[in-house]
């Protein structure tokens, strides 16, 4: 049975399809840590995913079911949540761009890579996991990495979370924690049971109290990346 380590959680997994196994390959684990759980998606789990997203094939839906189970475990046992965002690491610090699908998070992260070259590492382009560990928030790469397949098996301390919208002119400002609450709640997977939901709300409260938050209106240009990078990092180019 393959063993993985994702978001610093070691687990064994049993897959029906080869797709999920291939997807998770980079996260195979051969160290000494004991597995904390066994994850497998049943046919019923896959059926439940199919109801939410009937257009996808079963092997892909299995991978979603596995991800859902991993995230549910992490939320209840490891202070972590999935945060739909494009997470990029520069000089060891992570920046998370969040927005509804199709707004341009991945595009903006690409502009950062073009601007910063090798200094910028994609942690995950779609579904990273965010965890609270020893008083700090970290973002972790996961194999669920979006349509461009960008992720790194690594973690980085989060410096800032940035909400993106499309705009003609580039502008950035600090967000209040309050205006980010709905953003985060809408870009995570919400559990259905009460105690997990309370864990999630508590984590979001801590996250928004710990990291810098920004609102960015941007077009697709080098200047947009320059503005967001210099403002959020406090560094000059």
């Amino acid at each position: 049975m393959p063993r993985y380590k994702i978001a610093d959680v070691v687990f064994d997994a049993q897959f029906i399809y080869g797709y999920t196994e291939r997807l998770c390959q980079k996260y195979l684990y051969q160290g000494d840590e004991a597995p904390r759980l066994l994850i497998s998606a049943t046919l019923d789990d896959i059926k439940a995913e199919k109801e939410k997203a009937p257009e996808y094939p079963d092997n892909y839906l299995e991978s979603l079911a596995v991800f859902r189970k991993l995230c549910a475990y992490i939320l209840d046992n490891a202070d972590g949540l999935i945060f739909h965002s494009s997470a990029i690491m520069v000089d060891g610090k992570a920046y998370l761009f969040t927005a509804p699908s199709g707004t341009g998070k991945s595009t903006h992260a690409r502009l950062w890579r073009e601007l910063l070259g090798d200094r910028a590492v994609m942690v995950n382009d779609d579904k990273p996991i965010v965890r609270f560990v020893d008083g700090k928030f970290y973002v972790y790469g996961t194999p669920w990495n979006g349509k461009h397949g960008l992720d790194t098996n690594c973690r980085a301390e989060i410096k800032a979370v940035c909400k993106i919208s499309q705009a003609k002119e580039n502008s950035i400002r600090k967000a209040t924690a309050g205006e980010m609450v709905f953003t985060v709640l809408n870009q995570t997977v919400r559990p259905e049971n009460q105690s997990s939901m309370e864990n999630l709300l508590g984590l979001i409260d801590k996250l928004l109290g710990s990291v810098d938050t920004y609102v960015l209106g941007c077009n697709v240009s080098k200047e947009a990346a320059e503005l967001s990078y210099t403002t959020m990092s406090g560094e000059r180019l």
């Binding site: 924690a177 309050g178 709640l185 939901m197």
Partner: peptide, 10 residues
């Protein structure tokens, strides 16, 4: 949450 009173369903 973050100084806001929010309601969600479970």
């Amino acid at each position: 949450v973050a100084g806001q009173t929010v309601v969600v369903a479970v």
